[in-house]
Simulated assay, not measured.
Amino acid sequence: MSLYLDGTLHVSIPVETPLRPILGSKVVIPCYFQDTVNDPGAPTIALPSHRIKWTYVTKEKATTILVASEGKVQVETEYLDRVTMVNYPLVATDASMEITELSSKDSGTYRCEVIHGIEDNYDSVDIQVQGIVFHYRAITSRYTLTFEEAKAACSQSSAAIATPAQLQAAYDDGYHQCDAGWLSDQTVRYPIQEPRERCYGDKENFPGVRTYGVRDVNETYDVYCFAEKMSGRVFYSMSVEKFSFYEAGDQCAKLGARLATTGELYLAWKAGMDVCNAGWLADRSVRYPINIARPQCGGGLLGVRTVYLFTNQTGYPYPDSRYDAICFQGKLFTETENKVTN
């Protein structure tokens, strides 16, 4: 809803909040204003002296995205090439803005403000960019997945093979991974923030997303997957004795759940999950989510940490190894369970 309804200048963002666009995609935030000159039934007056301002608002500060007036639009350097006004100045009372190449850093509150003389009116909307990109390696060894096997591996992880735009957006958020992986367009790429020997790729000493170009579908690499949203909850089941892989599956089943997939754990991590105990997942991998850095939990690094069998970061632990169980309970079960217990 717009503010200052007793004035003559009304601004409105007519959408339900929050908007939930997907990582790497684009979003149009509609914003319209009218100047009723104290008469709600009067026709809209589009005066060239109206000043439109879009702002990204956090608890700490407000960052200007663009300012438009007299038919001209000035976009701040940080948003150049990513932000445009959809219909202005063709429709002078349409302040709608489009943002492309969305990254997680674009999540937050956006304010559309219109100023005319002494009147100032605005409306706001929240945006939550959905999804996370993660690197996936097969249980056997590094670079063993054909293109079709890569897509299947992502699907089994409650995800889809990532698009180039999604990997680029993850890179823009700070993602770094020196492992070549398939993407949806049959290219093989990897994101590098700090170039080093053997990770120079086609950009040498410059940071960026490296590419091998389009590859034959029978070549083998790792894969980058994209998990969009959670459809339930991820939780730990722990015991002093821990569990073997098969015991972990049984334990989750006893709790009305199943072992979580890798994609589900990544989504839980993105939502803030932090547990410094390694646990079994459905693909027989052993991982744990770290949001608070400490030396004893993955060497002080943030992210979903993986326990590998070998020092070259390949292989999963043997199924009779003992770890906690990381379970997933879907919304459907939870709703059914509540109906029974209530």
Rank of each mutant, 00 (worst) to 15 (best):
S2L: 13
Y4L: 14
L5A: 15
D6M: 11
V11L: 11
S25G: 08
Y32D: 04
N38G: 06
G41Q: 11
P43N: 09
T44Q: 14
A46I: 06
H50F: 15
I52G: 02
K53H: 08
Y56L: 07
Y56P: 00
K59D: 14
E60V: 06
V67E: 13
K72Q: 12
Q74D: 14
L80Q: 15
M85E: 13
T100I: 08
L102A: 06
G108I: 03
D126N: 12
V133I: 15
Y143A: 11
S155N: 10
S157F: 05
T163F: 05
L167H: 03
A169H: 00
D173G: 00
Y175V: 03
Y175M: 14
P191E: 03
I192R: 04
Q193H: 07
R198I: 05
C199M: 01
D202N: 15
E204A: 12
Y212N: 09
G213T: 05
D216Q: 13
E241I: 09
F245Y: 15
Y246T: 14
Y246S: 08
A253C: 02
G272Q: 08
P289I: 08
I290F: 00
R305H: 05
V307L: 08
T314I: 05
D320Y: 15
I326P: 01
F328H: 05
Q329I: 13
F333C: 00
T336V: 02
